[in-house]
Structures are given as C-alpha cells and as structure tokens.
Simulated assay, not measured.
Amino acid sequence: MTEVIAHRGYSAKFPENTMIAFHEAEYANADGIELDVQLSKDGEVVVIHDEKLNRTTSGKGYVKDFTLQELKKLDAGVLFPNLSEKQTIPTLEEVFAWLATNTLICNVELKNGVFRYEGMEEKVIKLIRQYDLSKRTIISSFNHYSIVHCYRLAPEVEIAPLLSEGLYMPWIYAASIRAKGFHPRYSAVPNEVISLSLESGIAVRPYTVNKEVEMERLFQINCTAFITDDPTIAVKLRDKYKKDKA
C-alpha cells in the first residue's frame, strides 16, 4: 500500500524541520518523514530547508555563516507563534537518535544546489551507518552528482533523484545512476509514467501532495509513496480507500 511520508515533518500544523514536527508525524501514523540538511559554519549537519535563516527562524543570513552553537540559539518556530515551547534547529544526529527509537523511514534531502557544502555526503553517510539506518534511509537531491557520490560511498543506502519537471522515461534514468526510485513533482508525473516505473522495479515518491484528489489518484494506482505536508489527511484517506477496496 502507498506509504505516507511527512514533508519536513507534519509541516501543515507544526514548524517545518523541527523535532515537534517529526514527533507529530509519527503520532499521525505517517510511514516516514522527509527532511532537508545543510552544514553549519563549523561543519555540523543541520536540518533546515532554506539556505537563509530569514523565513523559518528568528535569525537572518545564511545557515553556512553560523556555528551550530549560534544556530541553536535561534527560534525555529517563528511561523507558529502559538506554540508553548521554543523550537530549535535540530542536528541530523538528533533526528537519527530519535529515529533509532521507532520504525519510520527517513528521506534525507541534501540541499547542496546553491552551496556545495564540501564533505556533506560523507558526514550524512557516517551518521546513517552510526545509527544503523541504512535500510530505512533514502538520500535525495536535485544535485544528482551528489547522490551518485553517495551511492559510490555507500551502495547499501538508497538514493533517489528529485525531478521538478517531466523527464522522458525517468525509470531508465534512475536505473542508470543506480537509484531504486525517483521523487518527482506530483504535477510532472502522469499515471502512465508511474505505472511503467513500477513495472520496471523503480519506486516513485511524488512531492508535495496536499490535494485529496491527487492523493486518491496515487492510492488508486498503488504508487510507492508520496510526500505530503499533512499526513493526517493522507492516512485517513488511505484507511478509507483500504476499507472501500475490502
């Protein structure tokens, strides 16, 4: 059955890429979480989407220009002022330590399209191995050179290219770079492409699927998974779809 992956955690109702958003995704019965990583000034792997701090935190400027200690002082919950507790930017290690206590899958997106972040792939893979998460982690990126580098470093960890536009026969491209799947923008992947990919043994996990009509389409064709801001709606729909089929 199609898996539900919470985009930056339960980001529809909680601050994206924070521990509360990840915990709430688990409580919502999501099958996994998706998160984004970059490097701090002192080389720590931190979980945040934008290259700049401005949108989601109380800080201003680029993530790469701040040490982990400086980043930890910021409030990462500014878009949700009603939260009772301050949320901080997590490290990937913090998330992995928590993942070691459950069975969720984790899609780690490398945000290295703007800044190269030398050595980030090695650091992410070291943490995956340290926490024994090789079988539950998928590394994705719009930077396909980066995920190929990851595959060469750790062939046991699944990689998946992110695709923002339609690609001709993407299942063949994915197989050519040793990816077992790909993550397309949901509007750029028609049913036929999903079906042909699945028939070729290539997983398809579209992003970011928030409309119920799109979720239903993906459940109906038994898509591998999809990435959504609201796992509660997705899980509820899936349960209803399962019941109707039975």
Results as ranks from 00 to 15, higher is better:
86 K>M: 07
193 V>Q: 14
21 A>V: 06
95 V>N: 05
93 E>D: 02
43 G>L: 01
80 F>G: 11
169 M>A: 15
50 D>W: 06
8 R>A: 13
2 T>R: 11
151 Y>G: 05
5 I>Q: 01
211 K>A: 09
142 F>A: 10
6 A>D: 09
216 E>P: 01
191 N>I: 13
117 Y>E: 10
203 A>S: 13
217 R>I: 08
118 E>L: 15
121 E>L: 07
81 P>S: 01
233 I>G: 09
141 S>Y: 06
155 P>C: 02
26 E>C: 13
69 Q>I: 15
55 R>A: 10
201 G>W: 05
225 A>C: 08
135 K>P: 12
43 G>T: 01
244 D>I: 09
18 T>R: 03
83 L>P: 02
30 A>R: 08
185 R>H: 15
233 I>F: 04
235 V>N: 00
173 Y>D: 12
222 N>L: 12
199 E>S: 07
92 L>I: 06
17 N>G: 11
181 G>S: 03
47 V>R: 03
219 F>Q: 07
16 E>Q: 09
83 L>Y: 06
43 G>E: 03
100 A>Y: 07
187 S>G: 06
82 N>G: 13
156 E>N: 00
136 R>M: 02
75 D>K: 08
32 G>T: 02
97 A>S: 02
129 R>F: 03
49 H>M: 01
169 M>F: 12
109 E>F: 04
149 H>T: 13
31 D>P: 01
224 T>N: 11
173 Y>I: 02
150 C>R: 05
139 I>A: 12
117 Y>V: 01
20 I>N: 06
188 A>T: 05
